[in-house]
């Protein structure tokens, strides 16, 4: 009697288990179909393509092993674009984050018009890149631009040909990157700041800690999970920088003497610009993937030393 009850229970549970599981998968199915079709399949397929000579319409697409990768590594333009990408990442991510943190701390204090500033700083992030680039084209215009007006007419510096002098192309891209992405960082930092329990500050105040000490020993450590998240997200975003360059120098040309050619622009150049060498383009995409993957892994490891979860 007892035994049969237990079996019955088990059967019930088993049946229930499978039913519940099936139900859960059913709910997951739409997301999985969409992700599978548009994310996982292309991702896996890009590896397949990268090992073939995938020359647009060539009827035969032979397996070539690592030949596409070798070809990419032999191309000077790849190394140049890698250097520009690293340059962009270093020169934009850290300053953007530092500035964003500074502004977030200011916005977190009780200042007048706080929500106005919050909106104002977030606006560039939701502004269409193409529209923003048009404004930047004017600001940095050599003859009529606002920036040169200040530099030249007010400060007496030489006119700078921002878009045509290879030395200044990356700085333009970086400045635009900072302007565009800072709002996103600010919002994340603000959320992080508001999560910090006020008790810590009150206790610190009782102990007589000044502003800087409170920031250094309370805010920074307790904000570190947010900082880490912002860092990873910004880093990945910065490695994939494309739109700004594409719009500032139309047609994927990558600026004068390719001085603003980044990895994603290079990828476009190889794959879709007109050469249509999809095998090599897939190789570029995968190199970028591996690069970001390794850097993120290193970040994860390093983060153990400086990220504190409450």
């Amino acid at each position: 009697m007892k035994r049969s009850f237990a079996i019955g229970m088990r059967r019930y549970r088993r049946g229930r288990f499978w039913r519940d599981t099936a139900q859960a998968y059913l709910y997951l199915l739409p997301a999985f179909v969409i992700l599978g079709t548009f994310t996982f399949y292309p991702f896996i397929n890009s590896f397949f393509v990268s090992f073939h000579s995938w020359l647009s319409f060539a009827p035969v697409k032979p397996f070539v092993g690592f030949a596409n990768y070798v070809k990419i590594f032999q191309d000077d333009l790849f190394w140049l674009s890698l250097w520009h990408t690293v340059y962009y990442v270093l020169a934009s991510v850290i300053p953007t984050m530092a500035l964003a943190l500074f502004i977030a701390v200011l916005l977190n204090s009780k200042i007048r018009g706080r929500s106005f500033f919050r909106t104002a700083f977030f606006l560039p992030y939701i502004t269409n890149t193409v529209a923003a680039a048009m404004v930047f084209l004017w600001i940095f215009n050599r003859d009529y631009g606002l920036l040169n007006y200040f530099l030249h007419h007010l400060l007496g510096l030489n006119l700078i040909d921002w878009f045509n002098n290879p030395h200044y192309t990356m700085p333009v891209v970086i400045l635009m990157g900072i302007w565009k992405f800072i709002g996103f960082d600010i919002v994340l930092f603000l959320a992080g700041l508001q999560n910090i329990d006020q008790q810590y500050y009150e206790a610190a105040e009782v102990d007589g800690a000044t502003g800087w000490y409170r920031f250094r020993h309370i805010t920074l450590p307790l904000l570190s999970p947010t900082t880490f998240f912002v860092f990873i997200i910004s880093l990945i975003g910065a490695f994939k920088i494309f739109q700004q360059v594409y719009v500032l120098w139309p047609g994927g040309a990558g600026g004068p003497l390719n001085s603003a050619m980044t990895l994603m622009v290079y990828f476009y150049h190889v794959g879709f610009g007109g050469a249509w060498h999809l095998g090599q383009a897939a190789a570029v995409a995968n190199i970028l993937f591996v690069l970001i993957f390794i850097i993120t892994m290193i970040q994860m490891q390093l983060s153990k030393r400086w990220v504190f979860y409450q």
């Binding site: 002098n165 290879p166 040309a253 004068p256 003497l257 390719n258 610009g273 050469a275």
Partner: peptide, 21 residues
């Protein structure tokens, strides 16, 4: 068929000369 890449190469040469490189 490779005109796109050939144009890029010529453009680079043109820019190099014009920029004194």
């Amino acid at each position: 068929a490779n005109m796109y890449n050939i144009r890029s190469e010529i453009e680079t040469a043109f820019e190099q000369v014009m920029l004194g490189k």
